[in-house]
Amino acid sequence: MTTNIAHPYSPAKRFGNQIYVSGALSVDRDYQPVDGRREALDAAMERMTERLATVGGEIKDLVKLTYFVTDLSLREEANQQFIDHFLEAGPARTFVEASALPYGATVEIDAIAIVDEE
């Protein structure tokens, strides 16, 4: 995988059966911030699952997510997002307020997943 100077890290890294997903922002594919509360949460989730898939992971493999948000009142929408995406026992989650995020995003999600060995 090639990285560029602006992003000198792996979007996701697999080590054995563990996957570590770098923070995925509430931006579109052109790095423009997504407006709207739930729309921003959904965009960050979509970017995170895209990164997860690059190394063979799926949403069902997630065991831990960390949400960084610029507005702590997004918690209720994030809880609803969890209900919508994780029907059974969902992954663990941490929810943290940050003063600012890159590209004007309002949400960033990083994740850890465990997959079956190949």
Rank of each mutant, 00 (worst) to 15 (best):
A44T: 02
A44E: 04
F86L: 06
L74I: 07
R47I: 02
Q80H: 13
I109D: 09
F95A: 09
K64G: 03
N17P: 11
D30R: 07
I112P: 03
R29L: 13
F15D: 15
A43K: 05
R93N: 05
V107E: 05
Y67N: 07
A105K: 03
G36H: 08
H85V: 10
I114S: 07
E77T: 14
A43G: 00
M48H: 12
F95Y: 12
E39Q: 12
A92V: 05
I19T: 09
G56F: 05
A40D: 04
G57S: 05
T66E: 01
R29T: 03
P91V: 05
A78V: 07
G56I: 04
L62W: 00
A111W: 13
G56R: 11
L25Q: 05
D116C: 00
V115G: 02
Y31D: 12
L74P: 01
F82H: 06
I83Y: 08
L87M: 05
T94I: 13
D110V: 10
Q18G: 02
V96E: 13
R93D: 13
G104S: 03
G16Q: 03
A113Q: 03
D61R: 01
P91F: 04
Q80A: 12
I19H: 15
Y31S: 01
P8T: 09
G36D: 09
P11K: 12
G56H: 09
Q32C: 06
F82V: 11
L74H: 02
E88V: 02
S10Y: 15
F15W: 09
L25H: 10
V69A: 14
L52M: 02
G23R: 12
I19K: 01
V107C: 06
D84Y: 08
Q81P: 07
S26G: 07
G16F: 01
E46K: 03
R93Q: 14
H85Q: 12
